[in-house]
Design a protein around this nucleic acid. Structure first.
Lengths: 150, 150
DNA sequence: CTGAATCCAGGCGGATACTG
DNA sequence: CAGTATCCGCCTGGATTCAG
């Protein structure tokens, strides 16, 4: 946070100021760094969607399974456990028959919802931009002979 | 955007207001939705790290390879191509010998850097929280007999 | 209903060797 | 230097079945 704006960045001025300066120098690029590991954990498709869903309020297992289209029970449970273990969601079991389990965001999980929501909004807002870029890329000469990544 | 604060959310009041209301109802949970696909594309480890690195300014291939610890040439190129195709980064080739290639963020990519930075900052700020939760979880009775997810 | 267990294919992703 | 090509292990993740 100290204003050590060193002069070794001449041409690029598009950096978002506050956040990135700190991040870059904190070992985020190193696998052994805990921040890296947490980032890796939350930066995956299913995790994000689960957080999104739970932001609407507590939900049952079957609700999540229905809302998150295409998720297999295995992946759902796996990610739910992962999130629970990290303290992002809470799992509440009702000893009834048939059983009932509610999942909800913890305070920690709720604090993550905001950043993830911003990310999701970005995705929506830039659909046309990405499509346009993809179309241009396909018509460019360098798109010939490249193994399609994904 | 209209203030339709319907009353069907009684107990949970932790939702971040602005972003999530829109996201949830826009098919983000559906694989066929373009927003979903873009999100899936940017929400992966290597992509995020590449964006982070390039936020510091334009970099050469070898610079990226060195900075992003543990990335293989295959993954690096694959993700670079993916990002280029989506219009997030620009690839500039210098016809010199030995060859030189610079990668840099486009305006679109720069606009994504901010959300990603926020996410990365969240990861760092909550390292202790996640660790504490994990420790508690391990000591809880329900952590017995569960297949460790990741 | 909420998962657990098992099976299995596809692809992610690392290692290596090789080009212009 | 900046990739490309190839091989391949392994793990993700889907499908299915079963249990409490």
């Amino acid at each position: 946070m100290a204003p050590n704006l060193n002069a070794n960045k001449a041409e690029v001025s598009y950096l978002p100021q506050p956040a990135l300066n700190r991040i870059a120098n904190m070992g985020i690029f190193d696998t052994s760094c805990e921040g890296h590991q947490i980032l890796e954990k939350i930066a995956n498709k299913w995790t994000i969607l689960i957080i999104y869903a739970l932001t609407q309020g507590k939900k049952r297992y079957s609700d999540l399974k229905q809302q998150i289209v295409g998720i297999s029970p295995k992946m759902l449970v796996q990610n739910l456990r992962s999130l629970e273990r990290s303290g992002l969601i809470e799992r509440k079991v009702f000893p009834t028959v048939p059983p009932r389990v509610d999942y909800s965001l913890t305070a920690l999980g709720a604090s993550l919802a905001e950043p993830l929501a911003i990310l999701g909004e970005w995705a929506y807002q830039h659909i046309p931009d990405v499509n346009k870029a993809a179309k241009q890329y396909d018509n460019s000469p360098e798109s010939k002979g490249f193994w399609e990544p994904k």
